[in-house]
Nucleic acid binder design. Structure first.
Lengths: 236, 236, 236, 236
DNA sequence: CATGAATGAGAGTTCATTCAT
DNA sequence: GATGAATGAACTCTCATTCAT
């Protein structure tokens, strides 16, 4: 038990060191020696806990991701409304990375481009998180909060896309200083594109012009009126 | 003259080989020997044209980017309306990558995470292209096509973010098969979030003349009225 | 402790091998592989102890020179008289090289022509040794053992010059077989040029019997008297 | 004829360039490309005139040495007295190197440590020159100008040793600024060790033993007394 | 457990040299 | 005669990884 715990702690210590070193240098430019030095251990000790350099890399997101997901789930439990949930997701996603730039670097600059990482257990956890976003969106569609023709996959791609783009810019260029300032604007823009707009004022006027031999007893144009907060988007 | 040309051709040949090899293996896993083999040349010959492996990598986007930018500029010249221009940009951006997956791989998976690449001449060309997007957005704001509170930087980040995200997914997962299918949906969603939709005054009267087997058994012209701040969406 | 010692021993082992290999082939013609083979180690192990080939080369004289200097200092302590000290220096200098031809080769044929070596720590030790020669000469001047118009720098250059010349000839041509046979003649010649010869007591009476057509029209034996303090020149 | 001459000129041009480049970088650090660049030619052209890099190196001293020797021989022809000849040799030797530091560098720092160079035709010329020094010394011994117990080989080694030492110091350290300032001191010291020495102070006692039929009214030995601090040094 | 020490396996570079033009 | 282009052949150096202690 104690031994297990100590071992766990050592692993954590190595992972923290690895995170730092990989973040700074990337995977290939980083060395096991560097990680060992950072961890205050010997090279060989690293190999007591991780079988290869690559396994060490792929182990970094395992715990952190799981914890992040859990935390996110906790936040979401208290939130009502798909839009609000999305806002929360975006906010905490950015907050999460902002609070741990090393982790952000490893994930965004090292792992994200790795084919092998996709086959990793850790990535499956992330995938699940991503599926969660999908669920929220679908929830919003079902509850009529989002427009029924919303494509959940596309929306998710937009959400992830912008966030990744911003985080990477932040990592590489240091801009913007504060990631969180983008949380709301991004959310607004995303939601702006998908939220159902109930007509708060004005009317849609539909006039039906019937041919001379009219159907039923009705003749002349038919006018239908509907309060709307209209979006006139029509997919082909 | 001939010598200059042959040298240029050889360079191109090496770059093509490098593109292929780097795309397949990434930068570090790729070897000069591999590139040389692919190019049908000796290792040493590679070094006659590019001083280091890194220089070879960074040289890949130089010409291609320039040409891509030029072509894009050509397309845009014929387009009127900021929205249409954005649609064009997105479409051709995706088309461009779809037509050259190796190039896409190198740019998206190898170069995009490189701090050093940002200081490269080639990247400056790309930056300029990115600035162009900004200009188009601003143009849309100025012409009242886009909402006045549009943040051009944010919009650009959304555009680039989704596209990058989609291209990377395509590269790593092979999904979607056809990148272009996303061009319009993305554009619509982006524009949906920024196009002016507030009726500034009066009413738009839409009259739809339906064939006899009309909607809901109804026939005749349909008139729809919507308060609006006009959207000029035109599909190509 | 043990580890430190073993490491030191390994370093020594590598240095010995390097000395041998560099002596035989010179710096550039020698390879790390060759040194490793000679040392019975792998190439990589060499680099565990010396960061570059050049550092390995420059490390060769570090210890040896220090030890040589120390030993020399010990010998000199027991010697009285600047002339005797110089004799001792020359003798042991030659003895030192004769006993370690590989070392001699490295120093005389490889290091001596190296601009970079001059900026080396090891060279500073050598410089100090050279300064010591200067001190001895000055001592001889001060004690009136050497002529007061002696230029210590010049004398030192002569001493070093001949010795280097002889050692190099010995290395390249194998002549003379025994370096030490030159120790005394060299010393005598050097001292012959600088020792004070003021007669401290009595007179030397030189009588020259000239043929009839004598100097200055004079004929008959010529007697020359010179005050002297005998020179210790002993030709075999 | 013209073609032969042009070829000779080209060779000379390459040699000059090589001299410069080898002097600056040493043999191994220098490249054929560097020589070609310096000569304003292509690499391949170098190989039209010299079959290998090494042959190029060894060709440098061929002409120069021959010319130097010839000139030296010319100077010596006009000089009487072995001491004076040695002074001349030392002076012109230093002058020669001082006037062409690149050549000095190549000879002193590159060729002098080369075993292979010793088997070179060019070196044979140098050897002959060295033999000349020996001859002069022997001449001095025979003429009683030098002490009969002088070891010509040793003296030559001293002469060459100091000069080499000084020239190398000059090349590597830039000291002394003016090589020639050492010409006389060196000569004096060398000669000081081997010249037949007149009493330096005190009295010369000359006794003239006259034949029986004495000259004038004087009879018996004539003694002339002269205070002197004799140096038999004669500057040219 | 921890590690010092050792190394196998390569990779990137460099250049002297060749040869067709 | 001159050279642009190409390359074979090394060599230095780096590191992830292993293993005896």
């Amino acid at each position: 038990m104690t031994s297990q715990k100590r071992s766990e702690a050592r692993k954590e210590q190595i992972l923290k060191a690895a995170e730092k070193v990989f973040a700074k240098n990337g995977f290939h430019e980083a060395t096991i020696s560097g990680v060992a030095r950072e961890a205050g251990l010997s090279d060989a000790t690293i190999y007591e806990y991780f079988s290869t350099k690559e396994e060490l890399l792929f182990s970094i997101p395992r715990e952190t991701t799981r914890r992040g997901m859990e935390r996110m789930a906790g936040y979401l439990k208290a939130i009502r409304g798909a839009g609000n949930k999305i806002r929360t997701i975006i906010y905490h996603y950015l907050l999460f990375y902002q609070n741990d730039p090393d982790y952000a670097s490893v994930v965004m600059l090292v792992l994200k481009s790795s084919r092998k990482f996709l086959e990793t257990e850790a990535y499956q956890v992330i995938r699940e998180g991503f599926r969660g976003i999908l669920t929220v969106i679908q929830e919003g569609i079902d509850s009529n909060e989002f427009r029924p023709d919303t494509d959940p996959y596309l929306v998710r791609q937009m959400i992830l896309g912008v966030m990744e783009h911003i985080v990477i810019r932040w990592l590489l260029l240091g801009k913007p200083k504060d990631l969180l300032q983008y949380a709301d604007p991004i959310t607004d823009m995303i939601l702006g594109g998908i939220e159902n707009r109930n007509p708060t004022q004005g009317w849609d006027l539909h006039i039906r012009l019937e041919p001379q031999g009219g159907v039923g007893g009705e003749a002349g144009p038919q006018v239908s009126k509907a309060k709307r907060k209209g979006s006139s988007r029509k997919k082909p």
